[in-house]
């Protein structure tokens, strides 16, 4: 059965006098989603609304049957930690911690602390098991991106949200990262939502929303 994981309806967000309106869309567990649009149309705002980093002002965001607009700050924090894995455009980490410790910290903050096996498995899947005890500054750009994907998946999220994961990469690396995202999302039973203006991704997603 295809269950509805994400449903957005009548959503808009105002910065002062400027109002961003978003189209209604929904997706189920089998359909990865691309949210595309040019700069300035509110892609990051939408991503932050979907992940509860920004409060919903108007309209509705429903994830796994829970309405984000009805939650308070701490409920949103908890919900986000448990159900969402976010990959930001620039992979950033807690500098004082090693790669492995960053994954463990993500699990701790997500309320699923101490699953070292899962963390080791993710580093292995992403091809960077030998980097577990390195500080994140010592990693290369590609390794950092892989670690960011591992971190987003560390808490077994239902949804994997990626913000412009490919836009700064050349064709070859963009393809590698895309494949990595899809395969990791599938392997971890997560719905992949990519927010990007990267034209190269358009042909790869059947389920698309244009802003």
């Amino acid at each position: 059965m295809e269950e509805t994981i994400l449903k957005v309806s009548d959503l808009s967000y105002s910065y002062g006098s400027e109002t961003l309106r978003f189209p209604d869309f929904a997706c189920d567990s089998n359909s990865h989603l691309l949210i595309s649009g040019n700069s300035g149309v509110g892609k990051t705002t939408l991503l932050h609304l979907l992940s509860g980093i920004r409060h919903v002002q108007k309209g509705s965001v429903e994830i796994l049957g829970s309405k984000l607009e009805e939650m308070n700050q701490s409920e949103l924090d908890k919900f986000r930690g448990q159900n969402l894995g976010i990959i930001f455009q620039q992979p950033g980490f807690i500098k004082s911690l090693t790669a492995m410790e960053n994954l463990l910290a993500a699990q701790y903050f997500g309320g699923k602390g101490g699953d070292r096996k899962k963390a080791e498995g993710l580093l292995a899947e992403l091809g960077i098991p030998e980097k577990a005890n390195e500080k994140t500054q010592a990693l290369s750009g590609g390794e950092r991106q892989r670690l960011a994907i591992a971190r987003a998946l560390a808490c077994n999220p239902a949804i994997l949200l990626a913000d412009e994961p490919t836009s700064s990469l050349d064709d070859g690396n963009a393809q590698i990262v895309y494949e990595l995202l899809v395969s990791e999302a599938d392997r971890n039973n997560a719905l992949l939502i990519v927010v990007s203006h990267d034209q190269r991704l358009k042909s790869k997603f059947t389920n698309r929303v244009s802003l």
Binding site: R80, I86, G92, K95, A105, F109
Partner: peptide, 18 residues
């Protein structure tokens, strides 16, 4: 210096209290 790190922690689900 760590503002972004802290924001990341929040994005991972860390509550304000934590």
């Amino acid at each position: 210096d760590r503002a972004y790190e802290i924001a990341l922690m929040r994005s991972m689900g860390a509550s304000r209290g934590k």
